[in-house]
Amino acid sequence: KNAAQIVDEALNQGITLFVADNRLQYETSRDNIPEELLNEWKYYRQDLIDFLQQLD
């Protein structure tokens, strides 16, 4: 998997990933985040941060 796929997957589930103060953050109206997504975000944290910062 790559960062773009993970960001896309999150968006499809109503979750927006973004970077604030060099930390990976998310916004969602969901009550909870599936644990497998959280684990994936932790595992790919630096890739996601790098990818999202390139988009800014």
Score class of each variant (00 low, 15 high):
E9L: 04
N22C: 13
A3N: 02
D50T: 11
Q25E: 09
D50C: 08
K42C: 15
F18Y: 13
Q5I: 07
E35Q: 12
A4G: 07
I33V: 12
V7C: 05
S29G: 08
D21T: 04
V19E: 03
I6C: 03
N22V: 04
N22H: 08
R23D: 14
I15H: 03
N22I: 05
Y26N: 01
P34N: 06
F51W: 10
E40A: 06
N39H: 09
L17N: 01
N2D: 10
Q53W: 07
E27H: 15
I49V: 07
L55W: 10
D31C: 11
V19Q: 03
G14M: 05
L55T: 11
D50F: 11
G14S: 04
F18M: 06
L55G: 11
L38V: 09
A4S: 10
Y43P: 03
L17S: 02
E9W: 07
N32C: 11
Y43F: 12
L17V: 03
E40P: 02
N22K: 07
Q13D: 05
E9T: 05
E35T: 09
D50V: 11
Q54S: 12
S29V: 09
P34F: 04
D50E: 13
D47V: 14
L17E: 01
I33H: 02
G14W: 05
I33E: 01
D47F: 08
Q46E: 09
V19T: 05
E40F: 06
Y26H: 05
F18R: 06
R30P: 03
G14C: 08
T16H: 13
T16W: 13
E35I: 12
D8F: 15
N39E: 13
D21K: 05
L11F: 12
N39P: 03
A10C: 04
V7N: 03
D50R: 13
Y26E: 00
R23H: 11
I49N: 02
I6W: 02
N2Y: 09
D31E: 12
S29N: 12
D56S: 14
L55C: 09
T28W: 04
L52S: 01
A4E: 07
K42Q: 14
T28P: 12
I49H: 03
Q13M: 15
Y26F: 09
E40S: 06
L24S: 00
L37V: 06
T28V: 04
D56N: 14
D21M: 06
R23P: 01
A4C: 09
D56V: 12
L11K: 14
L52T: 00
Q5V: 07
D31H: 10
L38D: 03
A20E: 13
N32H: 14
R23T: 15
N2L: 13
I6V: 07
P34S: 09
V19H: 04
Q53M: 14
E35G: 07
E27V: 15
E9H: 07
E40I: 10
N22Q: 08
Q25I: 08
N22S: 09
E35V: 11
Y26R: 01
E36P: 06
D50L: 12
